[in-house]
């Protein structure tokens, strides 16, 4: 395998990083909203949240991607494959992030919220200033885990025509007859990216230690 081939893989890995990073960010925001909605005392809200989670958790990501990619043109929306890929990946991983956060929100000591209520916080202020920061810290290992999963799952978006790392390795393999070397190199790049996410997770955990040893 030549240096030139490896450079093509690295360039393709850039697209993988972009798709994964954007999807992870969207999923964190969306997942937070879904978990809060799921925990709502209003039955209709809770049902909507649970329905969202069970659909996007239960249908394989590959099927979701193909569904979105084929559904949007039918609805008259013409989007490039990369946007369909980000939408699919975000919606799916948001369901898992919502579950991770739901557990953290539910395990938040009630007294922390009561202290905020007594200090005059509105429900929205309690969410923003107390519940979300503490729940994020509690769920951080699981959130980082899911972020790594998102990176790996991004290899599936080639089915909607996005030429990211896996697809590039595939294309190059069929034109150079070096499948073993190319997939090994692609695997190594995924591993490096996963380690980076894991390391970022650890840095955040350390920064959010809040005086604990």
């Amino acid at each position: 395998m030549t240096w030139q081939l490896f450079q093509l893989l690295v360039t393709a890995a850039g697209l993988t990083v972009f798709i994964s990073a954007v999807s992870i960010m969207i999923a964190l925001v969306l997942g937070t909203i879904v978990s809060v909605v799921t925990l709502s005392p209003k039955p209709a809200f809770a049902l909507a949240g649970r329905t969202y989670i069970s659909f996007f958790r239960g249908v394989p990501l590959l099927v979701q991607l193909l569904l979105i990619y084929n559904l949007l043109p039918v609805m008259g929306i013409d989007l490039p494959g990369i946007v369909a890929a980000i939408i699919g990946l975000s919606l799916c991983t948001a369901a898992f992030q919502a579950e991770n956060l739901r557990g953290a929100f539910a395990s938040l000591p009630r007294g922390l919220v009561e202290a905020a209520e007594m200090a005059g916080f509105s429900a929205a202020q309690i969410l923003r200033r107390v519940r979300v920061p503490i729940a994020f810290r509690l769920a951080l290992p699981a959130l980082a885990n899911e972020a790594i999963f998102t990176l790996r799952a991004s290899s599936l978006v080639s089915v909607v025509g996005v030429v990211e790392l896996t697809r590039t390795a595939q294309d190059l393999a069929s034109s150079t007859f070096l499948p073993l070397q190319l997939f090994a190199a692609a695997g190594l790049l995924y591993l490096l990216l996963s380690w980076t996410i894991a390391a970022l997770g650890h840095v955040m955990e350390r920064r959010m230690r809040w005086g604990r040893v």
């Binding site: 000591p109 007294g111 922390l112 009561e114 202290a115 905020a116 209520e117 007594m118 200090a119 005059g120 916080f121 202020q125 200033r129 107390v130 920061p133 503490i134 810290r137 959010m208 809040w210």
Partner: peptide, 30 residues
């Protein structure tokens, strides 16, 4: 409720804020 202050058995300090942060949080936010 603004007329009332409450102290709890389990303290209920917010773990992500310093001692000063706990005291100033409602002053700035509320």
């Amino acid at each position: 409720r603004a007329k009332i202050g409450m102290v709890f058995q389990q303290f209920n300090l917010w773990p992500h804020r310093t001692a000063l942060g706990n005291v100033t949080e409602a002053l700035t936010t509320v």
